[in-house]
Design a protein around this nucleic acid. Structure first.
Lengths: 186, 186
DNA sequence: TAAAAATATGAGTCGCGACTCATCTTGTCA
DNA sequence: TGACAAGATGAGTCGCGACTCATATTTTTA
């Protein structure tokens, strides 16, 4: 992987700027924002954006990949040195909040129909989250019959709701509390 | 309200056809589907669509209004002659399933930024749902501290998740069960 | 039933946004 | 430092989809 020739210095810098700008722009205006705006925000000509990401989809995919990497990293950190009894719930809340970033992007991608990535990153995320879940179940803070797919569905749902519905911080907190309550043992 | 002159017979028929076609098309392909496709499906020229709904947004709004009307109607029916102990949960499930229709439409509308309707229909829905909630709380099947806004947030969340994530029927059922579990008294 | 009014038609306009390419600029390396 | 290749530039192309309007058709009404 990544045996690609090393980029020239300015190219590397521009690529990073574009990614950062794109994340901002798409988070603000949704994935329908124009590539031109990304270029402007990055302080770069539009041709440069297309040199690095031949397609708008490629650009979106790159952002998603980066976001997922961060999510997985965080999960890894929690697995390594979080308190098993609470790490799961911490991560749950973290994921829901992150959805505010991922949400709009996923939205359009889903609408456009095609799949983005050959799932190994998704698998990595699922594995990490699964580890947190099991640890919490062993620690007795999550009901033992809760399955990973259900829990992930809950995260996705709550995240989407938080994004689409523009919930207040307070409402989001209470809703997450209610949802995670469903996962606690009786 | 609606003091509008009576439409000509063919106009009334076409308007209905367009609405039906639009609901189908937007449900299938999301709100990004073209107006031309709606016209084709309705068996009508594109100009006719724009005569009835001067803007694509108007068309979407009309569909939303119709959907909401149905939701409210159903709630009213349940308030009138459902079992208070279970009607709330029935309606919860009904709403989540309906989201499969509403979801994509809401999505784009939210993304486009503007509000759709001066909320009285929303209020009517909230009131009806609130009545079901209170009845269930009196009947002791919903925890007394659950607030209406939280419950609506849960519905929205689960609905969105179900749409965006393309959950299987089974997964959706289990997830709804998990969520509604959070609402049962301990 | 014939004029008048309402409605339907669909080719055409317009703007926008993804993507290209001929040309210019800059980093790299001997 | 010079020359060459990698990269940057941005005006221009292309397609698509929302919306218009002159003309044709249908319903209504007197």
């Amino acid at each position: 992987m990544t045996p690609d020739k090393p980029l020239r210095a300015d190219a590397r810098r521009n690529r990073a700027r574009i990614l950062a700008a794109a994340e901002e722009v798409f988070t603000e205006h949704g994935a329908a924002a124009s590539t031109e705006e990304v270029a402007a925000r990055a302080g770069v000509a539009i041709g440069t954006v297309f040199r690095h990401f031949p397609t708008k989809r490629d650009l979106l995919a790159a952002i998603m990949k980066e976001l997922r990497r961060r999510l997985i990293e965080r999960a890894g950190a929690l697995v390594a040195d979080g308190d098993p009894a609470t790490a799961f719930y911490d991560y749950f809340g973290f994921l829901v909040e992150s959805s505010a970033n991922i949400g709009p992007v996923i939205g359009l991608l889903a609408e456009e129909g095609t799949e983005i990535e050959p799932g190994d990153q998704i698998m990595a995320l699922a594995n990490a989250f699964g580890a947190l879940l099991e640890a919490a179940q062993r620690a007795g803070t999550v009901r033992p019959d809760a399955r990973l797919d259900e829990v992930m569905a809950l995260v996705a749902a709550t995240g989407h709701g938080a994004v689409a519905g523009a919930w207040s911080d307070d409402l989001r907190r209470r809703t997450v509390a209610l949802v995670t309550d469903a996962l606690r043992p009786r």
